Amino acid sequence: MPLALILSSHVAGSQVGATAQAAALAPFGIDAMVVPTVLFGRHPGWGAPGGAATPIEIFEGMLEGIAANGLLGLTDLVVTGYFASPAQVEAAARAIDTVRAAPRQGAFATAPTVIVDPTMGDEGKGLYVPPATAEAIVAELIPRADLVACNAWELQWLTQADARDPMAATGAARGLGKATLVSSVRRGDEIGAVLADESQAWLALHAEADRAPNGTGDLLTALYAAALVEGQTPSHGLARAVGGVAETVAAAKLWNAPELPIVAMGARLKQTSPSVRIERLA
C-alpha cells in the first residue's frame, strides 16, 4: 500500500496541518507517517493554541527512527507544511534527499513524489512565520519540490507577482518554475484552485461559502496528493480535490461543525462534485 511522510503541524483539536492530511489520505488507502513540527491543542485562529514547537532533536530523532526501520525507502509521497524554525526546514530537506536516494525495493511507486506547501502566510494576515523560516523554505524546499501547493498570497510572496485571479495565478506559477497548485483563487463570487505547469493550466471553481473552517488548503493538498499517487490526470485530480474541499465545507455548514468533518466525509472525498466547474486555461 502507498506510504506518505507528512512533515507539518499536529493540532489535537483542529482538523488542520498533518492532522487533517493524514485523515484525508486514509480513504484512498494511503498510510501516513506524521513527524510533527509543532504540538498544538487547537488552531491559533481560535486563540492561544497551547503546546509548543517540536524541539529539533525530537524532530530529527523521529526521522532517524523512521529511517532505521527502512521506511524512507518505502515512502511514496512526502508532504511538507508548517515549520517552526529554519532548523526543522533543513532537517526536512535532508529527509527528502534520503527518501529520493534510498533503494525502493518493495515500494508502491517507482519514485517518490514531493509536495511542498510553503505554509507561511495568508491574505489579511501577511507572513505568520519568522522571515528566517520562510527564507529557509524558499532556499531548501521549493527547489526539491515536484509540486508546490500554496495559496494565492503565498504565491505572490514567492514570485512578487499578482496571483489573485486565474490568469494571474497561472503566470505567477509558471514564473516559479515548478508545477504549482494554487488555492484561494477567485473569479467573481466563485473560489477555487489553479493547477499549472509549463505545458498546461487548469482551473476548478465553485461558489464561495460564507464561512469555511480552517484547514481547507491542507485538505486540498492531501486530496490532490492522493490523485498523484493514483496516477489521475491533472484535470480529473484537480476537479476531484477541489470538489472534496467544497463538499466538506458544505457538510461543515450543514452539520454546524466548527472544524472540517474529514473523517465523517470518508469515501465521499473520492467522488467528484457537481458543484465544481473545471476549465482549461492554457
Rank of each mutant, 00 (worst) to 15 (best):
N151I: 10
D162Q: 11
E198W: 00
F83E: 03
H206T: 14
S8R: 04
R277I: 10
T110K: 11
A152E: 04
N69S: 13
E259P: 00
A161N: 11
E123A: 13
K125T: 12
G188Y: 01
Y82F: 15
R268Q: 11
I262K: 12
A107L: 08
S14V: 03
D210I: 06
W46N: 14
W153F: 12
E64T: 13
A149T: 10
T110C: 08
G237D: 02
T170E: 13
G13H: 01
A102K: 05
L147I: 15
L77F: 05
E279T: 15
T37P: 10
R211S: 15
R186F: 12
V38G: 01
L71I: 02
L77C: 08
Q105W: 04
A173S: 15
K253Y: 03
G47Q: 07
M120V: 11
R94Y: 07
P103I: 00
H206E: 08
G121M: 05
L203Y: 09
R277H: 14
V148C: 11
R164G: 05
Q105N: 13
N214I: 01
I262D: 06
A250L: 11
A23G: 04
V116H: 02
V38S: 02
Q15L: 02
A225R: 02
E123P: 00
L223R: 05
V194D: 08
K253F: 07
I115A: 06
A92V: 05
T133S: 13
V242N: 00
T221E: 03
A239C: 08
S184F: 09
I56H: 13
V116Y: 01
I262E: 11
A136N: 09
L71R: 13
G17C: 04
F59C: 05
L63Y: 14
T133V: 13
G121T: 06
P36N: 01
D210P: 06
A227V: 13
M33C: 06
G177A: 14
L71K: 11
E198F: 00
A168G: 04
M167N: 07
P143F: 05
W46M: 09
S273F: 11
E208M: 12
G65W: 00
A92R: 09
T159A: 06
G45H: 04
Q21G: 02
L141E: 05
T221P: 09
W153H: 02
R187C: 02
E190K: 09
D197V: 05
G215F: 07
E208D: 12
T19A: 10
M265N: 01
